[in-house]
Every structure is written in structure tokens, then in C-alpha cells.
Computed example of a mutant assay.
Amino acid sequence: MGGIVGMLLYVQMAVHQENVVASLEVESPQVKEELPADTEIVEKEVAEPEPGAVGTADISEDTEYSHLVETESPFWNVYPISSPGVSAENWHTILVQNRFKIDYTITPLAPRDWHLVRSNKAIRVQFRSELLAVKDILARKKRGKYSIQLISIEHARFPLAVSLLSRLLNDGYYAYLHRTDAKFEGKYWYRVRVGFFKNLEDARTTGKKISEKYQGEDYFSTKFWPVQPGPQELSRPVIDLRQPLNKPWVIQLPLYSSQAEALKDMAQINIETDFSYISQKLESASSGKLEFRIRIGFFETKKEAGRMIYRLKKKFPQFKRMKSLHL
């Protein structure tokens, strides 16, 4: 697998109306992002990581790894894939909710044409097809502007939606969740989507491959729907690193000993917040046990974070031990 792409530039994928496609999103104004001029793109090949090579820890075989690592500055960074995907020194972020879009930021070991990168003060998903678009304005047509929707899963089954994401990501697809902004049939729903494709033909071809690959398995239907997401879904970064700079307060919940418990609480939290994330790390360098952490952000002042804590405790009495922290 190719290594993490260094010094990459993000170019926003514009939505374009050559074909008429059913859109499940409400259009919102597109935000343009300027690109620095004369920036070189460097791509390095590195060796495939050894999943269990982290100190002397006997890590479970089903542990998923992440190279999106929390740091002091710029708060998050993408570590080289040759580095450990889990450690006792750093928190590795594995799930990010940014408004209605949810990314499972694990590091798949399958070959793929996309990577997480830090670029232009943001953590983004970078597709290889975008590299040429930086140099060649005509190549911008290669940017993806379509997704395929595979299934919608009700809010109460959020852990199942994440499990399906894991399956798709580990098979090399860029999959993500998009939560409905309103309730249908009295529930919020998570749309499991795979993106992004430059045209309908590519979207339908991939949708057919996925349907055939998972044929006969539970939860994966033989049906899929090409959709044209709104600009915010296409262009929103996984993490905007300017947010913690301007709003340095977060809310932290008590640590969890299992990912399942963290996901259960995350299901409740993400319908009430604009940004939340789950991270994991080893309890110690010699331990194979993982611990998990949920944080909610970002707040300009401690008082603002306190108001959110009060609101969450009032709605979810089980969240009794939340605390505000300054990053």
C-alpha cells in the first residue's frame, strides 16, 4: 500500500449537474478554499505496517488501527503508516462526528486510492485522482461528486452502522455515515454511503461490485442508490483544525473499557452536538488492553462548555461525570 501522501493540497469537489440524480441533501452555499501557489506534491512509498508490532503488548487480533493521532499542536496529525496504529503514548482517533457526517478514521490495510491527510489546517480525505487536478484545471472533472447509498440504519442501531463502515473500509472503499437532520418515522437514520465518484457510471459500477461482493450477507442489500450529495457533505473536512484554535474547550466523558460501550453513548451524543469523537490507546506499553475516550467540542469558553454539560445531563441522566477541559 502506498504511504501517507505528504504536503497534499485539498481541492474542493464541485457539484455539477450534467446528469439528473435524486439528491437526499438540501443544497447549501458552497464554500471555496484557496490553495497556496507553487506547492509541490510528494508521495513516498513505505512498507506495510505490522499490526501487532507495538512494544510488547499482546494486542487483540480484532483491534483496528488508526494513524490519526492527537497531538499538542496542531491538535491532530496523520502519522506515517509505517508507525504503530495504536500506542500507550498517544490517543488515536477512530471515529469523528462533524455535524451530520461521521467518519470511521481507522487505517485499512487493504489497497485503496484515498488517504487521510493534514492539509490547509484541516484533516481531510484525499483521493489520488485529486493530485492531477491540483496541477491541471481540466482534470477537475476527475473529482468525485457522486456517492452510492447502500442502506439506511435506524439510530438505535448505530453500532451496527459503524460495523458496516469497518467492513467496507477494510475492503478498500471510502465509506462514511450521513445522519438525517430530521426524524423519519420518529427516528434519526444513518445512511451508509461510499464515495466519491466522478460520474454516474463509476458510481453504478462500484455499487454493482459491492452488491455482488456481499451478496447473501445480512444487512447488505442487492439494491443501491447513486446520490448527489450537497456541497457540505462533499467538502466538509473530517476535522477543521482552526476550530480548537479559536474554541479551545472540550467536554470529556469518563474512560471506557470497551469500544461497544463508547459507541452506545456516542449514538446519544451525536444527535445533540456538532462535533464529537472517540479515541483509543493502550492502558500501558506492556498491556494489550485498550481504553476509549469520548470528547465533545468545541467551545470558546469554559462557561459555554458548562452550558452544554448541563443540557446533556438534563436529557441523558446517565451522563453524570462529564467535565470540561482546556486543550
Rank of each mutant, 00 (worst) to 15 (best):
Lys264Thr: 14
Ala175His: 03
Ile81Lys: 10
Glu304Gly: 03
Val96Pro: 01
Arg118Trp: 01
Gln126Ala: 10
Gln259Arg: 14
Ser83Cys: 10
Val86Phe: 05
Arg204His: 00
Val78Ala: 02
Glu34Asp: 12
Phe196Trp: 11
Glu89Gly: 06
Ala175Leu: 04
Gly172Ser: 07
Lys209Pro: 00
Leu109Ile: 04
Leu282Asn: 09
Trp189Pro: 07
Ser166Leu: 11
Leu138Gly: 12
Val46Phe: 07
Ile271Phe: 01
Pro237Ser: 07
Ser66Ala: 09
Lys314Ala: 14
Arg307Leu: 04
Ile151Cys: 12
Tyr277Ser: 14
Asn246Cys: 09
Val86Pro: 00
Ser119Phe: 00
Gln318His: 15
Tyr173Asn: 07
Asp265Phe: 08
Asp240His: 01
Val54Glu: 09
Phe196Arg: 08
Tyr173Ser: 09
Lys198Val: 02
Ile137His: 13
Tyr174Ser: 04
Val250Leu: 14
Ser163Tyr: 13
Thr206Lys: 06
Gln228Leu: 01
Arg128Gln: 08
Phe298Asp: 05
Pro84Thr: 08
Glu64Cys: 10
Arg236Asn: 06
Glu272Met: 14
Thr180Gln: 03
Pro254Leu: 14
Ala203Pro: 02
Ile239Leu: 06
Tyr188Ile: 10
Leu241Met: 09
Met13Phe: 01
Gly3Tyr: 07
Leu24Ile: 13
Lys198His: 03
Ile94Val: 15
Arg242Gly: 12
Val194Ile: 12
Gln30Phe: 01
His326Cys: 08
Leu150Asn: 10
Asp181Trp: 06
Leu132Trp: 02
Ile294Asp: 09
Ala260Val: 13
Ile296Pro: 05
Pro159Cys: 12
Glu48Ala: 11
Glu304Ala: 15
Gln149Gly: 15
Asp171Tyr: 03
Ser257Asn: 12
Lys315Pro: 08
Glu89Ala: 14
Glu283Met: 14
Glu272Ala: 10
Thr71Lys: 02
Ser28Val: 13
Val26Gly: 02
Glu185Phe: 14
Thr301Phe: 04
Leu9Gln: 05
Ser324Trp: 05
Phe275Pro: 02
Ser279His: 05
Ser87Leu: 08
Val250Asp: 05
Glu45Tyr: 04
Asn98Cys: 05
Leu177Asn: 04
Val162Ser: 11
Leu116Thr: 08
Val78Cys: 04
Ser324Ile: 04
Lys281Pro: 03
Phe299Val: 07
Val125His: 01
Tyr174Cys: 02
Val20Ala: 13
Val194Phe: 10
Arg143Ile: 14
Val69Cys: 06
Glu25Ala: 11
Gln126Thr: 02
Asp62Ala: 09
Lys281Gln: 12
Asn270Gly: 02
Tyr256Ile: 12
Arg99Pro: 00
Met322Gln: 12
Ala139Ile: 06
Met308Trp: 05
Leu169Arg: 07
Trp76Ser: 01
Tyr65Gly: 01
Arg321His: 15
Arg179Trp: 05
Leu245Trp: 03
Ala203Asp: 00
Ala260Glu: 13
Ser286Val: 11
His155Pro: 03
Glu212Asp: 10
Ile106Asn: 00
Leu9Cys: 02
Leu282Trp: 13
Leu165Asn: 15
Ile151Gly: 05
Ala22Lys: 08
Asp62Thr: 14
Leu160Ile: 15
Val238Met: 08
Met322Trp: 10
Trp91His: 09
Trp76Asp: 00
Glu212Asn: 07
Gly2Val: 13
Pro159His: 10
Lys198Ser: 05
Lys289Asn: 08
Tyr146Ser: 13
Ser211Tyr: 00
Lys187Gly: 07
Lys209Glu: 14
Tyr277Asp: 11
Ser28Gly: 00
Lys209Thr: 09
Glu25Ile: 04
Leu327Ser: 06
Glu70His: 09
Tyr176Phe: 15
